[in-house]
Nucleic acid binder design. Sequence first.
DNA 1: TTACATTTGTTCGTATGTATA
DNA 2: TTATACATACGAACAAATGTA
Lengths: 243, 243
Amino acid sequence: MNKKEFFLPGTPLYFAVKQSLLAALASGEWVRGQAIPPENQLAEKFGVSIGTLRKAVDELVSEHILIRHQGRGTFVATHESDQHFFKFFRIQRRDGYKTYPTTRLLKFRRRKATREACERLQLPKDASVFHFFNLLSLNNDLVMVDEIQVPEVLFATLNEQSLGERSSTLYNFYQNNFGINIVDTREKLSVCQADSAVAGWLDIAEATPLLLIDRTAYTYQDRPVEWRQTRANTAKYEYIAKD
Amino acid sequence: MNKKEFFLPGTPLYFAVKQSLLAALASGEWVRGQAIPPENQLAEKFGVSIGTLRKAVDELVSEHILIRHQGRGTFVATHESDQHFFKFFRIQRRDGYKTYPTTRLLKFRRRKATREACERLQLPKDASVFHFFNLLSLNNDLVMVDEIQVPEVLFATLNEQSLGERSSTLYNFYQNNFGINIVDTREKLSVCQADSAVAGWLDIAEATPLLLIDRTAYTYQDRPVEWRQTRANTAKYEYIAKD
DNA sequence: TTACATTTGTTCGTATGTATA
DNA sequence: TTATACATACGAACAAATGTA
């Protein structure tokens, strides 16, 4: 039987291979930082030519889901690599200087998801979320407050202590502790004003205008796993948009 | 003699082909909306295999510089296509509704470029620019003011009347009247306050906090051709970031 | 409607080069 | 040095979309 018969008509073979690779990643068959099998083995496994497999992998590489190293292999992307981190961290000083933020956990609780949170995270009505606030500093400036909500069902063992003690970036922490790989984010930006809590944390006057970055973060296959609202003081910093 | 000898060692052949294609585009050999020669002819012209030519074209397609249509040919991208336009227009209503803006030219003059404008547009110190303001409305809401500066040397025949009467988008206008193709933009976002002029145009109170979008727009080979500062009222609208 | 030529899309297989361990 | 793995390049064959006679 022709292999194409297994798929919808009109679906290119390389696309089906790409979906199979994504499914393997989502199932945890290959995990962060590890090499996936070499191209010739994968091609044989899927019963396609090396060129077809290559086209499928090409797309995942361009989406920063896999990383190729000539002579070594193809690896599941981690959030350790600097470039990849800055893909998701877009705030830098107005003179262009980039640094890693230092983080302080301000507040942490478990609560019933609001109606809006359920929509954003595609959760049932009675779901619970963890809801927490982080204060981020750059070059000793208090720059932004992240308000973050994640579904309890995916982050069951999350608690205040481990979150406060983590040494890595938050998405790296998700990856290492919950096996959740953030591969995409979608953001909407607008202007808001500091409420009393945020103003206190950022040491600014109440009602100071702030940049509001409303982000939903997705893992493989477009599944939302985090809703984040960042309120940033852009007096000395700015948001770098892509393309 | 090996063809590779013509290029820097370590430069892949497909990359050299891509640069040749870009040079042909920059020189105006192929113009907006037109089909470039078919793959087999280009492959023969450059003395490479069809697969190598294809890889070069693939990259230009992924950068939205060329557009392929199966059965018809490969075309120089225009700003007429909706999707491409929205790639550069990122403001939409909070409910997700997208529309084209209507534009009114508020002010137009020719002046000596400021020091900052010279830096942004990579111009010599004594260069002149056209400096103009547009008011943009969406769904009959006054949403944003664009402050735009372009080098006189590239837009020599630009004048208030043609700019005010244009029916197309601004980048389409650049393309049709000056042969300038905007293929990339880089944007930095922050918060500002409405000065008296902007407040008057947008019919809001002075010092209302606005989203400031600072954009440099580039044509082929990373040459900056426009500096634009957009001040947007995000009360009912928001900025959609990519990836 | 049909048939045909043109053009890009997909898939295959092979050979050789380069980087790594 | 050697083996492995990805990178580049070549060429061929057929499929699918398009436009035209």
